[in-house]
Amino acid sequence: MKKINFIIVITALLLAGCGDKDVFLYPSFTESGTAFVYHEGEFAESADIDVREIQDAIRDLETDGEITDVMVEGIFLDVALNATPEQPANTAAGVVSTIYITGWDNTEYILVENLEINLNAATQSVNLNQHLKKPGVDQLRSILKAIAYNSVPQGKNQIGIRIEGNTIPNSTFINAKMDVRIKVVIEYKDEVKGL
């Protein structure tokens, strides 16, 4: 999340003087779901994000206006090798992963399919924007909107994200922390009081 002390833009408004103005604000924040993957060969792990974390992030923005939309600007996959030291060290040269998001109705939507990543760096961030599937992103946006509008179905307290995949070469051991990092943009409509 970021914040800004910005007042100068207001000057223009002030000098323009009179009348109330509606302004649209677009604060943003990032949240991530984490999966610790230590498997030989095939794996499937959850990288859920708490609904409460999203709610807190929106609350931290402290914008007074009315939320009018929620958008997803981008998604990264951050990979850190050997993040679980009590497990064997990573021997996989790469990994092929598919990332799913679970809708409120428990239907799974593919966010990314068969993404191949070389595990040749201790840490790396993979921009998923070339690999994302629109139905999955749309579903994520829909879930985020429900959270922003306080219309989360009863009993749902997680955004379900699942990472499944296989190591390259087959049957090697993967020891990695995988963060699915999402940048969310909130649109607010706010009123600025003039003279």
């Binding site: 914040k3 910005f6 207001i10 002030l14 003087g17 604000l25 677009y26 007074d64 009123e191």
Partner: peptide
């Protein structure tokens, strides 16, 4: 942090300053 919108106009023919409602426009050009 909230920012108060300070309206500036004519004070002895120039700026008068006064605060109106506290508004948050910090993210406008974030």
């Amino acid at each position: 942090q909230k920012i108060k919108i300070v309206s500036l106009f004519c004070l002895f023919g120039w700026f008068v300053s006064f605060s109106s409602n506290a508004q948050n426009v910090e993210e406008l050009v974030s």
